[in-house]
């Protein structure tokens, strides 16, 4: 089994210590699709970083699947001076994927036309996001990770992205951190909510929805207290 085993994670900022997780446990199998719901600022990205090994837990243990993707749709690895094609080809070679095949898939799926052969620095944010999502889908992985969103662009293109993601998930697992109940229900078959510094597993999406609303209320109250303090 993979996941988080009695994990604690805290950050020190100056003299203050912010505790994000305490005794957080969540396990999943290599082919399971699990969504962790949380309001903004409750540690969704930190969970991704812990699973990717970028961050170490303050205590406890994290075990990740060996063949795990990078966050779906992440565009940070593109070099702005290189064309879309050059980026995809070199990154594919680094991943040990076939560059011709990966590039052909990305060119077709991204629907960028001739822009695919232009430097990425000439792309708009939306175009870069299309290229990034296409690259994520071009290289199949036995286990995917996604942070907050799956898909990009207008409704039609987003729907195409979601269909492609579902196709990839036919044979793969998923660890998905999100605040969207719709996306969680669409892509996952197990649900959990970050609540009071723990990961609470829920039996159904309705149960997750109720717990997420409670978590949001707590978060809103916390924000109000902070806002009041800053005004004072």
């Amino acid at each position: 089994m993979f996941g988080f085993f009695q994990c604690a994670k805290s950050f020190r900022t100056g003299n203050d210590e912010r505790v994000l997780f305490e005794n957080a446990t969540l396990t999943f199998g290599a082919r399971e699709r699990i969504a962790v719901l949380a309001p903004p600022g409750c540690g969704k990205t930190v969970l991704q970083r812990l699973l990717a090994g970028i961050e170490q837990p303050t205590s406890g243990a994290v075990r990740a699947p060996e063949q795990m993707s990078w966050p779906v749709g992440f565009a940070g690895m593109f070099h702005p001076a290189l064309t879309g094609e050059q980026n995809i080809r070199t990154l594919a070679a680094m991943l040990d994927a076939e560059p011709d095949r990966t590039s052909a898939f990305a060119a077709l799926f991204a629907e960028l036309g001739d822009l695919y052969y232009r430097p990425v620095q000439q792309y708009s944010g939306g175009m870069r996001a299309r290229l990034a999502f296409s690259f994520s889908m071009a290289v199949p992985f036995p286990f995917y990770v996604a942070d907050d969103i799956i898909g990009t662009g207008d409704e039609a293109y987003r729907s195409k992205c979601e269909r492609m993601m579902l196709r990839r998930l036919e044979d793969s697992g998923l660890f998905f951190t999100t605040r969207s109940l719709r996306l969680a229900e669409r892509f996952a078959d197990r649900f959990a909510v970050v609540h009071e510094r723990r990961i609470v597993e829920c039996g159904t999406i309705a149960e997750a929805k109720a717990l997420l609303e409670r978590a949001r209320d707590v978060n809103d109250e916390f924000e109000m207290v902070l806002a009041g303090l800053s005004v004072a």
């Binding site: 990205t45 970083r49 970028i54 565009a75 990034a132």
Partner: peptide
């Protein structure tokens, strides 16, 4: 050591 905001998709 990568800042959390740098890992999220756009």
């Amino acid at each position: 050591e990568i800042a959390p905001s740098e890992v999220s998709p756009e």
